[in-house]
Amino acid sequence: MKDTEFMKRIEKYRHEFYAFVQRNVWNQSDVEDVFSSAVLSAYESRRNFRPQSNFRAWMYKILVNKCFIANREKRDVSVDAGALDAQWLADESKTPNHIIEDPERLVRECPDEVLGALSRLRTIERSCLLLLSLGGYSYSEIADIVGIPVTSVTTHLARGRAKLRRWLIDYAKEYGLRRRAIVDRHDRSQEMKGGSDG
């Protein structure tokens, strides 16, 4: 790939790549270094980029690797669906509507807590979630970018989501958001009862 072509492409996606690094690196003082270093690494290995392949995905591979290194974490490629505890997942995957009546409201009231919970995930779980949400990639594309089997992607996503949900529910309990939802529901049922009485 020519220099000008590289610059054009990296410029096009720079905000997206920066956002990925910003959400994926634990130590926020490392974000700029990781981002710059990833761009420079990509530039140095631009000759290895195959013209027929996807530049954005290729760049994400480099970004993911840099984030693992910045977070001083090893990429666990051995985890697959078999390593998932079925009972745990079944418990964690229970629908939240019996606990949180209004998820939009919960998330709206504590966006910082959502991001805080995201930062507490393991790098591999967060990478998969970010590639899905920010990158809009499919499971198989994520598997290719992160360098793990598709079954591992689903496992990491399931674990990551379950943890996020659990932390958010805990937060809701702690700060009365759950109670408020239940109280609201109670109020509504009372109103309905009153309405039918009247």
Binding site: H15, A19, Q22, R23, E104, V107, V114
Partner: peptide, 14 residues
Amino acid sequence: TCIIETIKQAAEKC
């Protein structure tokens, strides 16, 4: 969807 939207909205520009 709410979680994903929150992540997207919080994404800062370079």
